[in-house]
């Protein structure tokens, strides 16, 4: 189980990464992230939508109302050019952090 503080930090990376593949509405986005992380990252309503609104204000993602095949109206989020630019350095930062932690744990166990 991942602690909430670390989850918050990784949430933006998770959302940007998943939206890179396709535009998604909030429910589908949360479900994809949960499935792809084997349930390690789960979003409550109080976490998901405020985060999406913040990311929208930062212009990393853009939401627009669309009608799905079954006639339901959903607000779909897609990655903006700014979001794409943000994703690469975010990935690098987290990769560096994980490598650093890996080195640290290896040294600690040596």
């Amino acid at each position: 189980m991942i602690a909430p503080g670390i989850k918050r930090g990784t949430a933006e990376l998770a959302v940007l990464s998943v939206l890179q593949d396709a535009p998604l509405h909030g429910y589908e986005l949360a479900r994809r992230i949960e499935q792809q992380t084997n349930g390690a990252l789960r979003f409550t309503l109080a976490a998901l939508y405020p985060m999406l609104y913040r990311m929208e204000q930062q212009r990393w993602i853009r939401g627009s109302w669309e009608t799905s095949a079954n006639g339901r109206r959903r607000r779909c989020y897609r990655l903006t050019p700014e979001g794409k630019k943000k994703l690469a350095p975010l990935r690098r930062e987290w990769a560096e952090l994980f490598r650093a932690l890996e080195r640290l744990t290896k040294v600690a166990h040596a």
């Binding site: 309503l45 109080a46 405020p50």
Partner: peptide, 19 residues
């Protein structure tokens, strides 16, 4: 039940929207 505490949902959304 999954929605959790609605006051918290309301507060967090307000914080996010009002910046």
């Amino acid at each position: 039940g999954q929605a959790g505490n609605w006051k918290s949902v309301q507060r967090e959304i307000l914080f996010a929207k009002s910046g």
